[in-house]
Design a protein around this nucleic acid. Sequence first.
DNA 1: CGATGGTGGTTACAATTGAAACCAATGTTA
DNA 2: TAACATTGGTTTCAATTGTAACCACCATCG
Lengths: 165, 165
Amino acid sequence: MNSDKNRFEEIGTPDDLRLEKFLPYRLSVLSNRVSNAIAQAYGQRFELTIPAWRVMAILGRFPDLSAADLVEQTAMDKVAISRAVSALFRNDYITRSEDPGDRRRQVLNLSPLGRDVYERIVPLAQQYENDLMASLSVEERQQLDSIIEKLMGRAQTWAERGLID
Amino acid sequence: MNSDKNRFEEIGTPDDLRLEKFLPYRLSVLSNRVSNAIAQAYGQRFELTIPAWRVMAILGRFPDLSAADLVEQTAMDKVAISRAVSALFRNDYITRSEDPGDRRRQVLNLSPLGRDVYERIVPLAQQYENDLMASLSVEERQQLDSIIEKLMGRAQTWAERGLID
DNA sequence: CGATGGTGGTTACAATTGAAACCAATGTTA
DNA sequence: TAACATTGGTTTCAATTGTAACCACCATCG
């Protein structure tokens, strides 16, 4: 984009921090790029936000869940789920029915319309993922899988046991 | 946490989408966990948001940049930079001086206080990164590096050339 | 010059998000 | 069964973020 690479003069000490090499930063940029592209695809075609789509993705596989179950499955928080569920309900993508055993709880399911949309989104989602994965070799895909698990585990313990120091 | 793994009954067709295996989802969860932990660490100690910290990280290495230069270096947008810069200026972490050659432009630098904070944050940031990286082998770190580059490239083209289809 | 278009940066406003308070129903204890 | 704590879910309010409009300055071209 710009051939004048030395416009910026670097100073700084040996143990300086190179943002462009800093893993948390890179993860954030990558994740945002990917999510934004996909959010746009879903949003354009089906009036769906990412949280709403996640809820549908879970309900498509696991019927009869409550909002609390969704929280457990998605790593999203209560409020986000509640809002996504309301929006989906407004669009007639899901049904809410009362749990006779516990009148606080509502049992959620895809409606026929919702299932229809679900079945059209799944291939779209897979297409995006395939397109991403196509830039990696088979070994790299496995590597990535296991690396993500490890990093996730480490970051998880940060959240649980408080931060370093 | 919960030994009753079969509370949820999976239905679904062969080519169903498993959210927990879906790369965009996993990236997003991972990135959020990492960022949140770090944001909290910075925020607690130095009243710094992530965007503000990014600006400092760049200015620490490259003095005399303008806001536009920061946009170029950080992949953040104009407005985010503008806000981060204002906040940093309010806290006396950076200085703004007028560019005599172009009176729209302001030349930014860390103040002595800012540099002081910068020098205390860099090790903290590195500590987080090291802690993450410690869960990976040396080969895995290289693999991750190159995988991220590839994925980034792919996602980049989505943004540039419009979406798939 | 004077008009026109581009650039650096900020402001305004709407949409999204998060934290905490909240309500209703259930469970628990005495 | 009265009191209290817990759980499912929603609402409220403030903080964060994104988009577009905007102002001031600079550059170009007639």
